[in-house]
């Protein structure tokens, strides 16, 4: 019975294709402020019909039951809109492990993009904080330049980008010191079990 609820408990982050020797350093979502504008708009949309009803409803006799019925349907749509926004937010993630970086972006229910970068291929990392609010709340874009002509890996609007940059660099250095000639040493260890 306890196992049935285990998915709701805090755990080591696991994801599709996670290797047994791989450790998740960071699971990153966009900063909460990115959601703030949308949630504020939804909060206004939630109270607007009730405010209208309280102002105008008294002029229309007998509207009460019909109004609350229509408002409850409006609430259903509102509830779905809220969770659609939250779902897109929660599925837009960047995973930093001690072996690789995974960029998973969700653009609607049936449009999902997953890209992966081995940590050894990092050339340089830059952080872009481009607005006063982003500066105060400490969020911004983190761009990873890889070898060759491949497009940059961009972490969009993540919290504490400088701290994340330092940790990625530390993980990169550690990986390079452990994996001479870029040969995966852990594969052999786990293959032998």
């Amino acid at each position: 019975m306890a196992d049935s609820f285990s998915i709701f408990k805090s755990s080591k982050y696991t994801f599709d294709g996670k290797k047994p020797y791989e450790n998740v350093i960071h699971l990153l979502y966009r900063h909460w402020f990115v959601l703030f504008g949308k949630i504020l708009a939804l909060a206004i949309l939630l109270v607007m019909p009730v405010a209208l009803y309280l102002n105008l409803g008294s002029y229309v006799y007998g509207l009460t039951n019909i109004f609350w019925f229509l408002y409850s349907i409006y609430l259903l749509i509102w509830w779905h809109s809220l969770f659609y926004i939250l779902t897109m937010y929660l599925l837009d993630t960047w995973i930093v492990t001690d072996h690789r970086i995974i960029d998973s972006e969700q653009h609607g229910f049936f449009h999902r993009m997953v890209a992966e970068l081995n940590i050894s291929r990092i050339q340089d990392i830059s952080v872009i904080v481009s607005s006063p609010i982003a500066t105060f709340l400490d969020y911004g874009n983190l761009e990873i330049q890889t070898a060759g002509t491949e497009p940059k890996f961009v972490f969009k609007q993540i919290p504490h980008p400088n701290k994340v940059k330092d940790e990625i660099m530390r993980a990169h250095n550690e990986y390079m010191s452990q994996h001479r000639d870029n040969i995966e040493i852990h594969e052999k260890q786990f293959a032998g079990i």
Binding site: S11, Y13, L91, I95, Q106, R112
Partner: peptide, 10 residues
């Protein structure tokens, strides 16, 4: 597709 407990709680 959610990673960690947060999406499951939501």
């Amino acid at each position: 597709f959610g990673i960690g407990p947060k999406p499951k709680i939501f």
